[in-house]
Write a protein that binds this DNA or RNA. Structure first.
Length: 213
DNA sequence: TCCCGGATCCGCT
DNA sequence: GCGGATCCGGGAT
């Protein structure tokens, strides 16, 4: 931690690539969130790729709607959605433009503003749990639908941006099936994480909920 | 430590 | 009306 990280936002060309190239390349990069209470920074440790309209596991599978419109927009922007009646999750839209592909940020290490994150994540027993899971990550960084469509490449002082960080050597990256995704393509190794990192969320297989009687 | 069910509501069929 | 890219607490092991 002696070297000061690069304060330059990632170039849009970083995101304007196939999602399966972008997703593992995001590991170790820095997500910056600026709130009224102060800045937070997150080192990305776990992601999942969603391959646009051709991917049965993707929100874009059934075409463009009001909710997923951001995924069909330009690369390098945020797609924030509301799920399970109480949580938000953050995606980074990737190229090629119009393919509606994106990377779900599933987990990370809070490196700046851990005190602010802890106030929002009261149930976290340990700093490693602050952003251990997509909804926890969004809660820790105070991310909601108001940030949907935010340009992540514009300015490090914007509400949300992604900065350069140290690129992770491929040998330190693991991959496997996506968490909670069923149906066709459920087995695809579209989930990527930093091998052995304690902030990576536990894998859970897809299991449909039972309906009340 | 694991497993299970409840919470909660929006978008789409 | 139904199911969802989840989380958490409680009870069992």
């Amino acid at each position: 931690m002696s070297a000061r990280p690069d304060r330059t936002p990632l170039a849009r060309s970083f995101f304007d690539r196939p999602v399966l190239a972008v997703a593992p390349d995001l590991l170790g990069r820095t997500l910056v969130r600026r709130t009224a209470d102060g800045p937070l920074e997150l080192r990305i440790t776990e992601v999942e790729a969603y391959e646009g309209e051709a991917d049965p596991g993707s929100h874009a599978y059934r075409g463009r709607t009001a909710r997923n419109a951001s995924m069909f927009g330009p690369p390098g922007h945020a797609y924030v959605y509301f799920i399970y009646g109480m949580w938000f999750s953050l995606n980074l839209v990737c190229g090629p433009p119009g393919h509606a592909s994106g990377v779900l940020l599933r987990a990370g290490e809070v490196t700046v503003g851990a005190d602010l994150a802890a106030k929002r994540r009261v149930s976290a027993r340990h700093p490693r749990e602050l952003a251990k899971g997509p909804a926890r990550l969004a809660t820790a960084l105070d991310i909601d639908r108001s940030l949907d469509g935010t340009d992540l490449c514009a300015d490090p002082d914007s509400p949300l941006s992604v900065l350069h960080g140290t690129a992770t050597p491929p040998g330190l990256v693991s991959s496997g099936p996506r968490t909670g995704v069923g149906g066709a393509g459920a087995h695809h190794p579209y989930r990527f994480w930093l091998t052995g990192d304690p902030t990576v969320s536990p894998y859970r297989a897809h299991s449909p909920r039972k309906r009340p009687t």
